[in-house]
């Protein structure tokens, strides 16, 4: 069975170390909560997992094989939900969805799209153009996107933003179903999402320790030297 793991990951944004020496492991059917205060690197880690961001150190592996060996294959097995919903204002909900479903390799994009909307409790918005959708409906549309085409690993960055309680409950069911089918999930969130048996990764543990006044000075020196090189 494939296992998605990362070892000794270090992420640099600008000139700030976001996290360092981070390890994680997700097996089929498992879920992982990414927890931590704002700016602790939850989104960065998800982007690293997706391959949008390259870690400056450490590596990701799928089934023991480094992801960088075959990035195309990695893209084929993930769904990423970011902060933006990627809904086109002039396309109807179902047109928006079936485009992404085609791109994701679904056999029957339109059928899948309609089914996914049904599953998220919004079949009535199928023919509504994107510009008339509310923030919550757009979010549901974005979540329907990950159901419209199959992928083993779901990377969800604050997926419940703008969702109402009913939608969150529906989405918990969908995640449970995905995991029951051997799928993996990594979620960053501030809201309680029920994922029984999910692991937790506290990102603040991997934040580089802020040094004392002197150490801080030395750290700066080191960075400057590296810049100079």
């Amino acid at each position: 069975m494939p296992v998605f793991a990362g070892s000794a990951l270090t992420c640099l944004r600008g000139d700030r170390l976001v996290f360092t020496g981070l390890d994680f492991r997700i097996a089929p059917g498992e879920a992982l909560f990414l927890l931590g205060p704002n700016g602790s690197g939850k989104s960065s880690l998800l982007r690293v997992m997706a391959g949008l961001l390259k870690p400056i150190r450490g590596q990701l592996s799928w089934d023991g094989v480094p992801v960088t060996d075959d990035p195309d294959a990695h893209r084929g097995r993930i769904h990423y939900v970011g902060h933006l919903d990627a809904v086109k204002p002039v396309l109807s909900a179902v047109e928006n969805l079936s485009f992404w479903a085609t791109l994701g390799g679904a056999a029957d994009p339109r059928g899948n799209a309609l089914k996914a909307l049904e599953r998220l409790g919004v079949p009535h918005i199928a023919n509504v153009p994107g510009r008339y959708l509310s923030a919550g409906q757009k979010r549901r549309l974005n979540l329907a996107r990950i159901m419209a085409a199959p992928a083993a690993l779901w990377l969800l960055d604050e997926p419940t933003v703008a969702l109402d309680r009913a939608a969150i409950a529906l989405f918990e069911g969908i995640i449970a179903e995905h995991r029951a089918g051997g799928g993996m999930v990594a979620v960053s969130t501030h809201v309680d999402i029920a994922m029984p048996g999910a692991g937790e990764l506290h990102l603040d543990e991997f934040t580089p320790v802020p040094h004392d006044e002197d150490d801080g000075g030395e750290g700066d020196d080191v960075l400057e030297e590296e810049d100079a090189v």
Binding site: A50, G51, L52, G82, A86, V87, K88, L103, G104, G105
Partner: peptide, 14 residues
């Protein structure tokens, strides 16, 4: 701006 490019870059389409 709407995040589509990010998703396009994550699709299997080169």
């Amino acid at each position: 701006e709407d995040g589509s490019l990010e998703l396009l870059s994550l699709s299997t389409l080169p």
